[in-house]
Design a protein around this nucleic acid. Sequence first.
DNA 1: TATCCGTGGAG
DNA 2: TCTCCAAGGAT
Length: 348
Amino acid sequence: MRDVSLPTDLLEWYDRHARDLPWRVSPAARQAGQVPDPYRVWLSEIMLQQTTVAAVRDYFLRFTTLWPDVHALAAAPDEQVMGEWAGLGYYARARNLLKCARAVVTEHNGRFPDDHDSLLKLPGIGPYTAAAISAIAFDQAETVMDGNVERVMARLFNEATPLPAVKPTLKSHAAGLTPPQRPGDYAQAVMDLGATICTPKSPACGICPWRSPCSARAAGTAANLPAKSPKKPKPTRYGTVFLGRRADGAWLLERRPDKGLLGGMLGWPGSDWASEPIPPMPPCNADWQALPGEVRHTFTHFHLILTVMIADLPQSCAPRVGQFLPRQDFRPSDLPTVMRKAYDLSQA
DNA sequence: TATCCGTGGAG
DNA sequence: TCTCCAAGGAT
């Protein structure tokens, strides 16, 4: 027997407390008949993967201004899209974003498929995003499982088993609660609950619409759930980058290969990044000088300490790697953050 | 199943 | 300064 009161309670809370987000159709507008634009739902969900609402907002507005629909995005040059994504991180998302837009145009007549299985076949769309798009954009009764939902379910049912082993159990709990009515609003409601009330630290149980049925709240374990298996320490790696500038203002940059770290992004030529500093090979012969200070940056799984070398290069310079980008084509904002930090050091 | 893949804000 | 971690996906 499905407990219908829990979803109803949450939807009533959502009707009063839904956040105003640029990609969201408010519950009031939705019930008045306004339907979401699948393109905007898709774009927002890709950007929101492992990324906060605060970080996504401006990027979403910029992208939808530059490319209002999937046809426009599909026709955009790769370099421009990668440049606009710079700073948001997880750059495979940007590469797959373009692949997906072009697949929707060429294989789906410019319209996003509405079913979970077809969505799942598209680049960059996994189980969570497929469920989110079919629920939010097409109002299908799919169960979305993201970090928020996992946390809310672990607490609601007081599941003490650590992640990731407990995931199937949490998914089962979530599926049992997913209502046939307003599944799109419900999916967003659970995630809003996790983002604003059932937070990782110091959850606001006192104002939670689910405080009464919450098992962890009763047991006093909410703040410690979900349990997680211990994570590995991050090693430190070292490297060198070369900032070469010509008298005409052009900078020597290279496009990184699609696979691997910062794949497809613009960057400064330099050494590999290794556990010990290595003698670097300059991209061309010049009077390279080390800048005072260093760049420190932390990626998902290692710390990086970067030495920054700079030199004025002759107009005749024929670099071993990379190519010169004319001054008017160079925007520091096109660089991934670690590369922009190196540029900032040179301008300090 | 485990690892790789960014970034910036909160505490 | 340091750890955690946010609407995950690909391999």
